[in-house]
Computed example of a mutant assay.
Amino acid sequence: MAHDHWENCVAHFDAQVDVFAAEYFGRPDVHCVLVAAAGFDPRSLGIATLLAGHLGDRLSGLFVREERGTPEASLVTAADQNAEQLRALVPGCEIASVDIFGDDNAPIAGARVASVIRSHSIPAETTDIVLDMTALSIGVAFPAARLLLDYCESRGIAFHIMIASNPELDDAIASEPGDRPIAVRGFAGVDQSDATLDIARIWVPQLAKGRAAALTDIGRSIRGTYKICPVVPFPARDPRRADALIAEYESQLVDEWQVDPRDLVYVSESNPLDCYRTLSTLARRYSDAVDQIFVPSIILSPIGSRVMAAGALMAAIEHDLPVQYIETVRYDFDPAKPTVVATAEMRVHLLLSGPAYSELGAAAGAAPEITAPVSDPPA
């Protein structure tokens, strides 16, 4: 299904998310299903708390608990506490455990979360489904988003993505990558096995603090890369974040990937539509540039910020781009770190489908009828 309306995607940021939630989800005719994480991340409760406050018993929930090996006891305790609070916020919700790895240590998160979503009973009166990507891994969030978007579009239900972002907290969560780079389920891209022209691959990895080992392994698994265009956050809450990432990845950028500085892709840390539009432009221009000479292939690897990953998700769906990823074996996180406590969350809301866009067909370019104001995030 075409998603031309995403060029005029309804989006809200920070305080405007609260305004939108009050005006939209506060309406008595709205019945919502929230799909989110039930893990250790302290941000897991933010969106659920916001929606429960406006929807009450009109909110139902499916909360995913990602299971990986033998995690630290402190993380298990934090996840248990979050799960109990989610049960209190959304009575009658389902909390489903999803194994990230199989018995042979192969990544199976996409297949498992797809099974959980398909078996979940969505109430007949549902008007809206919200996917909270805040604390879901990419291997779970991307397949879930694709399934839920397809479900909503086939039934005329509104589909939202919401995120409570904190880049400093992302940096404080250390992760150990697995050893098997894979295509995210549902994001293998177009089958090019019978292509008559040579395939020219561009790899677009999202740089994130402490994830160099994962990106190095992903990069080595992609054969015949024509060009590598790393994504860095700019503008960002910390104006030097992009510089710090370039310094951290210097050996990969210079020695291994041989990246021309002109090939760095700068996208906003706070606005997923900036990432979506930038990657969409890259996909269209590259396709036009190599038409009838090469078969273009742009491979995304969104690791780190979920806000930027949401933009990559939209571009991957619209242009059928492959997403190459490596699952995390274990996390290491100390919630008492001063940087985690001191920084505020940035909230994002995206409306990807639903009746609000129906007028766009009748009046091209017209904005959907949403009473809450739509605004750009602060620079």
Rank of each mutant, 00 (worst) to 15 (best):
Y286R: 04
Y286C: 12
S287Q: 12
S287K: 11
S287F: 03
S287C: 08
S287M: 10
D288I: 14
A289M: 14
A289W: 11
A289K: 10
A289H: 08
V290Y: 03
D291V: 11
Q292R: 15
Q292M: 15
Q292H: 14
I293A: 14
I293W: 13
I293N: 10
F294T: 08
F294W: 09
V295C: 11
V295M: 15
V295D: 07
P296T: 07
P296W: 00
P296R: 07
P296I: 01
S297D: 12
I298P: 05
I298M: 03
I299A: 06
I299G: 00
I299R: 02
L300S: 02
L300F: 10
L300A: 05
S301E: 01
S301W: 08
S301H: 08
P302N: 08
I303G: 02
I303H: 04
G304L: 01
G304W: 01
G304P: 00
S305W: 05
S305N: 15
S305A: 12
S305L: 09
R306G: 07
R306Y: 10
R306V: 07
V307Y: 05
V307M: 06
V307F: 04
V307P: 00
M308R: 12
M308A: 05
A309F: 04
A309R: 04
A309C: 03
A310S: 15
G311C: 13
G311L: 11
A312R: 00
L313P: 01
L313T: 02
L313S: 02
M314L: 15
M314H: 06
M314Y: 07
A315E: 04
A315H: 01
A315P: 02
A315V: 08
A315F: 02
A315N: 06
A316E: 04
A316W: 00
I317N: 00
I317E: 01
I317Y: 05
I317S: 09
I317C: 11
E318Y: 03
E318L: 12
E318H: 11
H319R: 07
D320Q: 13
D320A: 14
D320H: 12
D320G: 05
L321K: 09
L321H: 01
L321V: 03
L321Q: 04
P322F: 00
